[in-house]
Every structure is written in structure tokens, then in C-alpha cells.
Design a protein around this nucleic acid. Structure first.
Lengths: 244, 244
DNA sequence: TGCGATTGAAATGCCAGACATTGAGAACCC
DNA sequence: GGGTTCTCAATGTCTGGCATTTCAATCGCA
């Protein structure tokens, strides 16, 4: 592992990249302890603060964890889906908000991905997943629910659907798309009639998944997408008329 | 923005989180300049190295960029799909390798997601996307191609398919899944007959997309998934017999 | 001999101060 | 007016040090 002191890039960035490469290509394995900060500083011929900046970069990506004390140090982290999830959601949220991604585009992507899960979820869902879906539908029909709570329940419902596919890779990818859309969804106010229609569609999805009928689930998801798109269109149009 | 000096978490992690929150909730907007390191140090009542560690954490996630010189400083980055892509791929790759995700699971997820893109891509693909797909098919049929090059071309083919959907959110999510699988795919050696079958299936996909026939594209993708799974199964079984 | 308390060492977390380098604008000279 | 130099603020880096945490070895005592 070597770095180029004359490169225009920061030394800490180069060091971080060198260690990252070592982790990705398997030179450093999970739970292995890295040399101490002082040793790394000597190896790369830089000072300790520079090494520390590099290690913080890696810690920000959950690639390493640090432990204090005599047997402490920096250890290669086993990157878990749970640990990677929040970062992916933050990134996805910012991508949507900073790139002026339209509601339409985000919504289309989300439902396209969900339809991909539907057949698998229909085939493999456990009673647990079904119970969660039914519970969230019930919550959504409670009167007096705020729009935020309604959206949160909606997310929980869809996550149960996705998790039902029993494929962690799918769950991971989908969670980013679904959760990242929540800020956009929260911009919508739902009337009682809107909610009723959505709940009916949710019930259709739950029924299809319970009957292990993948195609029906996909059809119901398409209907829900159409409903959501129409709803958003109306809300945004109304808002444009009031405050142009 | 305040931090808790008595918290068990690192000060630099707390500071990074505080700034991250400010970016996500819109308190800090794109291209806005953060206070200088010295000012941040004073505001949070910590030293400058601590502030720097926090900033490096954010830089590692491409949330900020720094510029030297008199008018320099740290600026909120416009997070682009292009900048987020490499990080997502690194994370996905490590998730697969560190969590012993089976080839079967990863492959299933990948093709499920691609099938989600197929109808959109069939409807919207441009001549450019079609040309790329045809070009990659042609490359794959070259004799003497290494397995790595064949896989790389395979990835390029599928990326063209996904990009054809014209939805950046989908492209972003899919790129992670497709690219992260490359190391797994590279473990497979392809015989000439394997390649011929794959190329035939690729041609079927390209034809369906050209004819704007979404359902056929999905069917062809399913066939390709089945082919890939069978192939992998045989390769791994053979390997297990040779070196148990 | 056995066990608890003490101490030592190693590591990270944090700080103060300083110097080097960079880059943009201001001031200056021709 | 145009090019050149100067200035200065900001980041990048280093030195040295202290604080804190944690484990392990050692010591003391029963």
C-alpha cells in the first residue's frame, strides 16, 4: 500500500482509498485489526492527524469501527444490510431533493421496483408479513390519523410487501427507493376519500399476496401507482392555482 | 446546531451528524459555504482537528467539497447520480461478499429488478441504447474474448437496457445491483456453447426492446436468469467435485 | 494457593499552536 | 489598459502533548 505525496489529492483521501481497496479486494478481512494510528502514520510517512482523517472517512462509510483501550484499534467492519440501509436512504433522499427529480419519475421507479418483488413476495411471504400488512391497513383506516402518520404506515406496508420476497438484496435496494420518497409523499394532503381508495387498493394487494397470486399483485400495484400519480397531479395543480 | 460533549459518541461524529441533518432538512442549501474550520471549531467549542475529522466524514459521503485558497472553504455539494454511483457499487459489492449472499439470491434480485425496467425500456429506448446493446452483443461473439471481458460486456449490455428506461432513479438503483454482481460473475468460466446461448438470449432481449414489446423482453430476461442460474449451479458443482 | 485490588501499558480521543500551500482579489507598475 | 506582484484568508499538514479508556499483568493479602 503506497501513496503519492505529490498527487493533487489530499493525503488523507489517498490513504483512505488505499485501505478501502485493501478491504474490497480481500487483503484485509472482516474483523481484522488495522495497524495502530501511529504505525499507519509511520508506514505512509504522514502524521497521525492525517491518518485519523483517513480513518474517519472509512468510518463514515461503516467500513471500519474503532475501539478504545489497550486492545483497541480500528477493525474492518462486517458491513451489514442494517448498517448500510440508513446511509443509502440518506443518499437517495438527497439525490431526489437536490436533482429536482419529479414526483412522477420517483414514483414510477418505486412502483416498477415493487412490481419486481410482487411475484416473489406472493410465493414466499410468511404469516408474519401478511399480519404486518393487515395491521398497517387497519392503522391507515383509523380516523384522525395525520398525513405524516398515514405516509409512515404506507411505507411500513410496502416494506412488509418487499421483505416478503425473502431476498435481502431486494429489500435493501427497495428500502432506499421507498423511504427516500417519503418526503415527497409528505407534501401531499390526503382527503378521506383519497385514503379510502388507497386502503382499498392496499387490501387488494394484501389479498393477492395472501392468495399467492403474483400477477394480481402486480396489477394491483399498477393501479395503486396510477392512483398515486393522479392524486399527486391534482394536488400539485391545485397548489399551483392557489400560489402561482 | 448543538452537540453533547458528554455523549459516548465521538465529537467528530456528532458534529458530522449535526451538519448532515442541516443539509438533509434544508437548513444548508446546495453550494452554500459552511463557516470556516476555525469558526466551526469555536461554534461547537472543539478544536480544529476535531472539526476537520467531521468534515472528512461528510466529504467521504460526497455531501461537501472543500476548496483551498482565500475564497475557499467547505461547500454543500450537489449530490449527483454520477457521484453517488461508485459509493453505492462499493457498498453493494461488500454487502454481497461479506454477508455470504449466495449467487442464487443476488442473481434473483438482479433479474427481478431488470424485469421491472424492461417494459419502460421497451417503450422509451432511443436508437442510442439499441445501438449500444447491439454493439455489446457483437463484442460478446468475438472469439478469444476473456471471461472478464465477456462479463464486462454483459454488464454494459444490461446497463444499456436499464438506461433505456430513461429513469435516472431506476438506473441508479440498478447499476448497484448489476455492477456488484460482477465479482460473482467473474468466478464463472464460460464455454463457447454457454456464450452462444447467452448471446442468443441477449439478441432476443434486444429484439423485444426494439419491437417495443415489453412482455417479450420480460420473458427473455426470465429465460436468461434461468440460464445463468443453471450455468452457475453446474460450475459450482463441478468445482466442488474437483476441490472439495 | 487463590483471589481481589492496583498499577502499567497501549491505544484512541482530543487539544494547542505553528508552518506550508493554495488561490482569488487588490494593488501596483509599465 | 493590461499584466504582474502582493496580500491575505482559508485549507492541508505537522509536532507535541494530555486525557481517557481498556485490558492484562502484577502485587498484596487472606
Amino acid at each position: 500500500m503506497k501513496i503519492d505525496p505529490s498527487s493533487p489529492a489530499d493525503l488523507s483521501a489517498q490513504i483512505a482509498q488505499a485501505i478501502r481497496d485493501a478491504i474490497v479486494n480481500g487483503t484485509l478481512i472482516v474483523d481484522e485489526r488495522l495497524p495502530s494510528e501511529a504505525e499507519l502514520a509511520e508506514e505512509f510517512e504522514v502524521s497521525r492527524p492525517t491518518v485519523r482523517e483517513a480513518l474517519k472517512r472509512l468510518a463514515a462509510q461503516s467500513l471500519i469501527r474503532t475501539q478504545r483501550g489497550a486492545t483497541g484499534g480500528a477493525f474492518v467492519n462486517r458491513l451489514s444490510f442494517e448498517a448500510a440501509q440508513p446511509q443509502q436512504i440518506t443518499t437517495s433522499t438527497l439525490l431526489l431533493s437536490m436533482n429536482a427529480v419529479s414526483f412522477e419519475t420517483a414514483c414510477e421507479a418505486r412502483y416498477a421496483l415493487e412490481r419486481a418483488c410482487a411475484p416473489l413476495s406472493a410465493a414466499r411471504r410468511t404469516p408474519d408479513h401478511l399480519a404486518t400488512m393487515r395491521a398497517e391497513i387497519h392503522r391507515q383506516s383509523q380516523p384522525g390519523l395525520t398525513d405524516e402518520a398515514f405516509c409512515a404506515s404506507d411505507v411500513a406496508f410496502h416494506r412488509a410487501l418487499v421483505d416478503g420476497a425473502g431476498n435481502p438484496v431486494l429489500s435493501y435496494q427497495l428500502a432506499g427507493a421507498v423511504e427516500a420518497m417519503q418526503p415527497l409523499m409528505n407534501m401531499i394532503t390526503f382527503t378521506a376519500r383519497d385514503r379510502a381508495r388507497i386502503i382499498t387498493l392496499h387490501e387488494g394487494i394484501a389479498n393477492a399476496v395472501e392468495a399467492q397470486d403474483g400477477p394480481s399483485a402486480m396489477t394491483a400495484l399498477t393501479a395503486l401507482e396510477h392512483e398515486t400519480q393522479t392524486l399527486a397531479l391534482n394536488v400539485f395543480a391545485a397548489r399551483a392555482r392557489v400560489a402561482p
